[in-house]
Design a protein around this nucleic acid. Sequence first.
DNA 1: GTCTATACCGGGATAGAC
DNA 2: GTCTATCCCGGTATAGAC
Lengths: 195, 195
Amino acid sequence: MARTQGSHSGTTGPRVRDAALRLFARHGYAAVSMRRIAQEVGVQAGALYNYTPDKQSLLFDLMRGHMEDLLAAWADRSPESDPMAALEAFTRFHIRYHSQRPDAVFVAYMELRNLAPENFAVIERLRREYEEELVAILRRGVAVGAMEAPEPKVAAMAVIGMLTGVNTWFRAGGRLDLDDVESIYWDLVRKAVAG
Amino acid sequence: MARTQGSHSGTTGPRVRDAALRLFARHGYAAVSMRRIAQEVGVQAGALYNYTPDKQSLLFDLMRGHMEDLLAAWADRSPESDPMAALEAFTRFHIRYHSQRPDAVFVAYMELRNLAPENFAVIERLRREYEEELVAILRRGVAVGAMEAPEPKVAAMAVIGMLTGVNTWFRAGGRLDLDDVESIYWDLVRKAVAG
DNA sequence: GTCTATACCGGGATAGAC
DNA sequence: GTCTATCCCGGTATAGAC
């Protein structure tokens, strides 16, 4: 039954995506060759084209998949009626979700300029959609008098920038665990938009 | 006196750096060829090697120059004795300085992974030096009871992430000018570390 | 200091056998 | 579905004339 070549149980597609994601995150899309991806997967370069029409599509599919998963994960929650509870949920969700997928996050933020224009537009729309979730929370908080943020859109960008930055320095196994980090950041966020 | 080729007043070196910076920021280091840079400058590719030993050095010199200029600009101020005044100064300085050099900032943050290891170490040290300026301010603020930040290093990373994010969305000529943005962010920072 | 020309290598992508 | 072989292009960097 042993096969030394040919299909190995139909998992090559996901393995291509995994290898591409890891290599793109580490070295950048433009610096990674199809040959290098193939080497990582253990196939010849030509075989990759059974799984993606071209290199650009490989990048785009990874980025779109990440953004759609992110939005789905956020939507898949019991919605909080209290704006302050929603803000805490968003803060902790963002830190935790992003810390669990550092490669996908990195690629999604760094490789925007390597997307073809039509692909860029799609990713941008998804990103905007996510940002608007936070803007809406802040607006509701201001409306009910629980928060003070004269410019909710600016505050949302500030908060997201702050939270996303965790991935640049946090490493598991250090003095602080993820729960600690979540709590420290929630403290900063809560106070920043306090009335 | 007209010359159609040869030296054009000794400014080719800076023009190479300017073109490289702009192109690296727009398309990424790995995606930009020496031929493309030469085209931008208006010389042949071979002529670039009168100004840089290789492409890697071109990137490294741009990044080191940016970090050194940043540190020098921050150092070149009358130091604030009051920690809260220092924090406001840092906030406004960071936003303003970075908003005036979007390309250099972008390259300095995005192309770290394309640096040779020994060059990476140099840039990382400079970046750490800058971050420590803010950490020191927060520690002093906490020490004199003007601020509350249980983890000054984490708070510093959070604040820098927040401030650096301005470059991702701010465009001059919009509803808000840079003074507005500075004030909004200063409000957020001040409250975030308030006692 | 810049040019032209080129060495040398590796890129993305495809064809056709198995 | 993967292989081998290959096409065609463009990459970095250098040599030598002017």
